[in-house]
Structure formats: structure tokens, C-alpha cells
Design a protein around this nucleic acid. Sequence first.
DNA 1: AATGAATGAGAATTCATTCAT
DNA 2: GATGAATGAATTCTCATTCAT
Lengths: 219, 219, 219, 219
Amino acid sequence: MEQPRSSGADSGDGAADDPRAGGRGKAPRTERGRRTLRKLLDAAAVEFGEHGFHEASISAITRRAGTALGSFYTYFDSKEEIFQALVRYMSEQLRDHVTPIVQAAPDEIAAEHAGLHSFLGFVREHKEIYRIIDEAEFVDYASYRRHYETTVERMRQRLAAGAARGEIRPDAGEVHAWAIAGMNVFLGMRYGLWDADADIDAVARIANDLLANGLAKKG
Amino acid sequence: MEQPRSSGADSGDGAADDPRAGGRGKAPRTERGRRTLRKLLDAAAVEFGEHGFHEASISAITRRAGTALGSFYTYFDSKEEIFQALVRYMSEQLRDHVTPIVQAAPDEIAAEHAGLHSFLGFVREHKEIYRIIDEAEFVDYASYRRHYETTVERMRQRLAAGAARGEIRPDAGEVHAWAIAGMNVFLGMRYGLWDADADIDAVARIANDLLANGLAKKG
Amino acid sequence: MEQPRSSGADSGDGAADDPRAGGRGKAPRTERGRRTLRKLLDAAAVEFGEHGFHEASISAITRRAGTALGSFYTYFDSKEEIFQALVRYMSEQLRDHVTPIVQAAPDEIAAEHAGLHSFLGFVREHKEIYRIIDEAEFVDYASYRRHYETTVERMRQRLAAGAARGEIRPDAGEVHAWAIAGMNVFLGMRYGLWDADADIDAVARIANDLLANGLAKKG
Amino acid sequence: MEQPRSSGADSGDGAADDPRAGGRGKAPRTERGRRTLRKLLDAAAVEFGEHGFHEASISAITRRAGTALGSFYTYFDSKEEIFQALVRYMSEQLRDHVTPIVQAAPDEIAAEHAGLHSFLGFVREHKEIYRIIDEAEFVDYASYRRHYETTVERMRQRLAAGAARGEIRPDAGEVHAWAIAGMNVFLGMRYGLWDADADIDAVARIANDLLANGLAKKG
DNA sequence: AATGAATGAGAATTCATTCAT
DNA sequence: GATGAATGAATTCTCATTCAT
């Protein structure tokens, strides 16, 4: 079965510092323009997060941004384009939130614990980011795949490094990485997104223990 | 953050087997009507699977079904309603495919292996089902939650039973169930949906081993 | 210099009887539909004739036709499409008006006289037709060329027949036909369109005499 | 039937040679300004010639001219105004090309031959000029009429002079002039614009012979 | 029940023109 | 004068839903 969904252009890897810079929309050349572009992106994040891609309208975005409708098209060619820019931006924000915490962990098992824990916290704080990335599956399939493939690849490398250091089983590979990613995402949805009162610490602990020791009964 | 997405009315639980029952369009009274309803559901499954909810149009569905546009409203009140009916139907199909296989397993670890394996096979055979259920997150949130909550609850009960039988760790609970579900779904996406050539047997084996024994290095 | 104007599909030669039938828009299948289609075409003729293609709006057309805006799209895919249908229709109307008159003429010189005379009368009665066909040069180039190439070709055949019958110079050919056509069109514009009081009979007589005898001074 | 098309203000007659004069944008006072104005006019000629008035955009013109969008309005009040300036300018260019050639002819018949011949050559060299003038019928009706009325009036005076000199029939008048103009324009379109390979010399010869001697069969 | 035409609210998008720098 | 961002009216087109037959 084919998949003729919109995919959008893959505009390279994005500049490093200001994630809203190069590659997204038409770059503003004045300070005023830069301000407007930022207002639009912020407004779009809120609109898409609250109403989803299809219910969000460009006029609602510009209304929220406090700009004229036409100004949107100064920076983006379409609703799809700003969505794509947003997915990339949020994917980077998530990575920037999680990465340092993970890297500070003493070993690989602890790293995965830290990763899940910080992810759960992030989801709870930024529900709209979770939503936007998830909806990309149906709006901008290429961005969606890029996000998860990138994320999982980072995780796979961590596993490989941990295995090399002898911290975890030596055969840990891609399948394990996808499995862990899926676990994290579902726990994020269930306990970060749906259940405002869930004990995130406990969830992360339980899941990490499952990961570390599996289901098998201990002697 | 609010969640004001359209969610559709949750029309009770509807009997499982009779396709004329609640949740699947207005019951037709003649044989001819029953045929039309079935044609519409089949056509909608293909359309939604191929183009997604928003790109699919009622007229495309009726065109594919070979019925008049107006006939659609003889059986469904809205586009959302047929989507909802479909989600429920596919959720049941998936369950009906997996359940007997899982139940035939000798113990809980084997059951989870069988569950993942049959899920991977099912996804590969019925990609549109995966898509429709997943898109429900953005079209009919209630159906989406119902599907996963039901699915995970079944899994939790299995874990509890397995624990009671002493096959797995005694503390296996809801968090474990969500973790396993997420793992399965992501592996289904990655290896069932995206990668037509993946070795599904190997994937299921690796994942089940992770589940059974965890990441920790074995003596 | 290229000519990337819209040209529209050339949908064959058009059915014979009802010029609004086959080939244009989506054919209505009910009597009611046929009425609506006709109302739209009539309204479009008036709008395009009065305001030109670009100033005319689809909503103005449907308002004048007394239909809903959306009904337009039941029969036409775009403003260009109805314009194209109209050009063809008007080209045929003009031909149907002129042809029998020309054919009744006793010889070729008289035929050209009758042709110009009836054309002048037609332009004066149906200014909007003249406008629509002329504007096609900038809206639907293919239709424009088709109209004139068809018209001139008919004229060329008349000249050839007249020459064969020995009524006019034997070398009369394509260039003569284009020359006569241009003459007719400009006289139509100047005396049919611009000058409501012009003596059309006199104009036709003078032009036909020029055609018949040229500029050269008579003995 | 009314004729409420936009026609633009007819800003007097404007001197002929100085491009800074009336009708061609607001007079720049510096050399730099004069250069910008010229660049805009050149760019507009190409854009209008290639895409027509409605498809051409101010931003495309300024982009091509290498100026800022806003600079356009330093020199012109509107899109219509630059179009009007262009029509006048091109009308003059055409006249300046044809007039000396016509005036060098020994008699009136030869003059019309030279006129058509040089017109055909000019059209082939400057297709965009033909297009712009022709489109004026639908953009700036006043300019369009002025162009043809002026052109035909010049021709009428030539005919009158030729008749006075006894070179052609004494009754040659306005109708003849419009007829000849139409002939020329259509031959220009057919053989100058559409048919890049046409033998322009032959066309001019055939048409001039028609003009000189008419259709009637010679003894 | 079936048919297919009619409806109209709603959305995206364009671009001439204005304005602040 | 030059620049380029901002503006917003206007337009086309879509499509779920309703209705007359």
C-alpha cells in the first residue's frame, strides 16, 4: 500500500546555533523581520499544540502572533512549511534537553534511566511538543521519520558504547534501541501526557529495572 | 494545556461480532443495505489507509464503493463516525488475530513473544490498519485511548496471571504493560511498516530476549 | 520569446447539436443539472463580456446565475475552463450566424460581402462575444488560435472554390484569407463595436469594393 | 453594453523623445534615478511581454530590474501606470521604425508595401511589443484606442495624399485605412508572431498585390 | 434506499500598495 | 532615493452535509 503523504523538502541538517535560522522559511534581513518570524513560530507552536495541524488555521496563527495574515507568507510558503520548521525545532529542543542529562550518567543503564526520566519530565512540561512531533506522522512523514531515526540512532550508539565498555550485554543493537524508544514514548504518552498525577520517578524506576533485568524471575 | 480535539461520541461498547451492531453505522434492514454498508466500510478502510483521514473525502469513498454520494449518509452521520467505526473494527480484527496465538503459548514469556511476532506479521499484511489506528490520535482521541487502554489492560492481566503462576517477576504491572506495548508498536512501525525486508522472526526473538532477560550483562 | 500562457486542454472538436454538451465541464445527468449549467454559461458570458476575464469573479457569475458559489464547481474546474467553453460556444455561434448567409451568396465576391456585413451586424448585436473571443488571446491562447485558424481556413476554402469557379483570381490563397479576416475584424471593432452610429451597409460596401478591385485607380 | 474597464488616466500627449517626459513615470532628478527608471521600464517590457499584464507582478519586475520592491513606487503610481507608459513608448518605437521606411517609398502603393513589410519584420524582432500593445485592449483601453486611432489616422492621411497625387483611387478614406490596418495586424500575427519560418517578403508582396489590384480576375 | 445536484462556510494564498528605517 | 517588511482585501477552490427526486 502506497503512502502518498506530503513529505516536504529535506533542507539539510539545519544550522547549529539559532535553530530557527537558516533553512527554514525565507530568512529575514532586518531585526524587525527576525522578531516577526519568531512571533510566528511561537504562535504556531501553541496553535498546533492546542488544535492540531488541521484544525489550526493560518489566520489563527497570525492573529495570535499579532501580525497581518499576509505576513505569514513573507516567511513561509504554506502551513506545511511552518509545521516542518517546527518539527525540526522541537526535535532539537527535546534533544538539547535530554542529551546533557544522559551524558552526565555514570553508565549506560543509568543513562537510559536518566533519558527516560528527563523525557517524561519534558513531555509533561511541553505537551505541545509531544503532539507536534507525533502528528508529523500524518502531516510531514519525512520529518517524523527523520526525528525518530535520528533519536534512535543516538540511542543505538549509546548502547554500542556501553556494550564496548562492558556495562551491558554485548549484542545490544538497533532492535534494542527501537524497543527502548517505543517503551519511552508510550510511557511518556501514558504517564507524561495523559496522567498529570502519575509518579514519574516511580515510572522511570520501574521501566529502567525492566530494561536492566528483564521480566524473568530472579532467583 | 487543553485538549479540545474532536473526539466523537463514545457510543457505548457495541457487541463484538455482529457487524450490524452499534458503532458501525445505522443498521440496514435489507440485504441490499447490508451490502452497501459493507462496501462503504471496505472503501473507507482503503481510502483512510492510503490518504489519511483529512485527505480522504467522502466522495472518494463512495466512488470507490460504487455508491452514490448521498448513500453515505444513509449509514453514517459524518466522516468522523465512519472513521470511528473503522477504528473499532480494526482494533477488533487485530485483537482477534493476536489473541488466539497468544493464548496458545505455554507461558507468559512465550506469550509475549507470540504476541509481538503475530503483531509484526499483522502490521506487514495490513498496513492500513496500523495507520488508521494511529491516526485516531488526531481524529478520534477517545477511540485511540480506548484501543490502547484496552490492549494494554489485556496485557497487564496476562502479566498478572503469569506472575501468579510464578512464570515472571511478581511485581509485573501496568507500567510494564505500557512499556511492552510501546516496544511492540515501535518495532511494528520500524520493521513491519517501514522495512519490507526485515527479518521479523529475528526482531521478535531479540526483543523477547530483551524483555525476558533485560540489558544487564550475563555472567 | 516564449509564451507560457495557459492554453487549456483541447477537448476534440465538440459535439454537433447542443454546443454546450459533451466536452465541456462535467456533463449534468439530470434536467435540473442541465438548467443550472445553462444558467452558469449565460451568466459567465455577460460577466466576461462586461468586465473581462480578470475582473470577473466566480462569485459574481454564480450570483448572477442565481446559484450557490459551490455549484460552479459542479460543472467547471476553474474560471479558465468556463472561459474556454464559452470561447468555443461563441465561436460556434458566430459561425452559425454567418455561414448560411455566406452560403446563400451567388458568387465569391458577394459571399465576402455578405460575410463582412453579417459579421458587422453580429458584432453590434453581441458585443460581448467579440470581447470574449478577443480576450482569449490573453487567457486561453489555444482557443484563440483555434478560433481564428478555423475561421480563416473556412475562408480560404471559399476563396479556392471561387477561384476554381473562375470568379476570382486563381492564386487566391491563405495569405489572402488572413488579410481579409484581419480587415473584417478591424472593421468590426471600429464600426461595429466602437461606433454605434456607423453606417454598416456603407462600410461593408466600401470594404468589399476594395477587396474586389483594389486600390489601383480605374481607367 | 457598458464598457467599464479600467482605462487609466490619459495624461495628455507627452513629448516624444525625452524619456523623462510625461506619461513615463515620475521624473527622476538624479542620474542614478534615471538609471533606475530605465531599468524598471526594461524589466517591465520583458515581464509583460513574457507573462502578460495579469500574470506579471511588480515584485518580478523589480527583481528583474535589480531594485527593491519599494523603489517601483518612486517612479510609478501603479501597475497600470507603468503599463500605460510602456504602451505609449512601444507605440512610438513602432512608429519610429516604420515611418522613415514608409516615407522613403516612391508612391502610395509602394508605401503600403513598405509599411507592411517593415511591420512584419518589426513584429518578428519584437514580439513582446506586439503583445503589450494588443493586451492594452484589456488593460488600458484608452491607450489601445489611441494607438490604433493614431496609427490609422496616419495611414488615412497617406491614402488621401496618394489619392491627391493621383496614385490611387480618389475615394480612398477612413474605411480603407482601417481595412488595411486590420490586414497588416493579422498578417503580423499569423506570419510574424506565430510562424517563425514564414517568408515575410512573399507575404508582403501577396498582400500588397491584393491591396493594389483586388480580388477580381484580371483580363 | 438510492441518487446526484445544491449549498455555503471556511481556508489558503496572492500581491498591489503602504510604511518605517 | 532606496530598501524590504507589513498589510489586508479579495479570490479561488474544497468538501462535508443537506435536499429534492
